[in-house]
Amino acid sequence: GMDVRRLKVNELREELQRRGLDTRGLKAELAERLQAALSGPSSG
């Protein structure tokens, strides 16, 4: 899988935006949010 901790802030935001998620917050928050999205149930 993707290691969200290795991504830069702008990369985290890009991935979040692609999934329609909130791109605001600290890098740690963005990484946590993206990780949750990646490990969560895949819809679609």
Rank of each mutant, 00 (worst) to 15 (best):
G1C: 15
G1Q: 13
M2F: 15
M2N: 06
M2I: 14
D3P: 06
D3M: 10
D3E: 08
D3Q: 09
D3Y: 09
R5T: 10
R5A: 10
R5H: 12
R6Q: 09
L7I: 03
L7N: 00
K8E: 09
K8Q: 08
K8C: 07
V9R: 06
V9M: 13
N10R: 15
N10G: 09
E11H: 05
E11S: 05
E11Q: 14
E11F: 05
E11M: 06
E11T: 05
E11I: 05
E11D: 06
L12R: 00
L12P: 00
R13E: 03
R13D: 01
R13Y: 05
R13N: 01
R13K: 08
E14P: 00
E14W: 15
E15S: 04
E15R: 05
L16E: 00
L16S: 01
Q17D: 06
Q17A: 15
Q17S: 13
Q17L: 13
R18E: 04
R18A: 06
R18K: 14
R19I: 05
R19D: 02
R19T: 01
R19S: 02
R19V: 02
G20Y: 03
G20M: 03
G20H: 06
L21V: 03
D22F: 02
D22G: 05
D22V: 06
D22K: 08
T23P: 09
T23G: 03
T23A: 06
G25A: 02
L26M: 10
L26N: 15
L26R: 15
K27L: 10
K27P: 10
A28F: 09
A28T: 09
A28S: 11
E29P: 02
L30S: 00
L30M: 06
A31Q: 15
A31H: 05
A31W: 10
A31S: 06
E32S: 11
E32R: 15
E32L: 13
R33V: 02
R33N: 01
L34R: 00
Q35P: 00
Q35L: 15
A36R: 14
A37L: 05
A37Q: 04
L38I: 10
L38E: 03
S39D: 12
G40K: 13
G40T: 11
G40E: 09
G40D: 10
P41T: 14
P41F: 14
P41E: 14
S42W: 08
S42R: 10
S43K: 11
S43P: 14
S43W: 12
G44H: 12
G44R: 10
G44I: 12
G44Q: 12
G44Y: 14
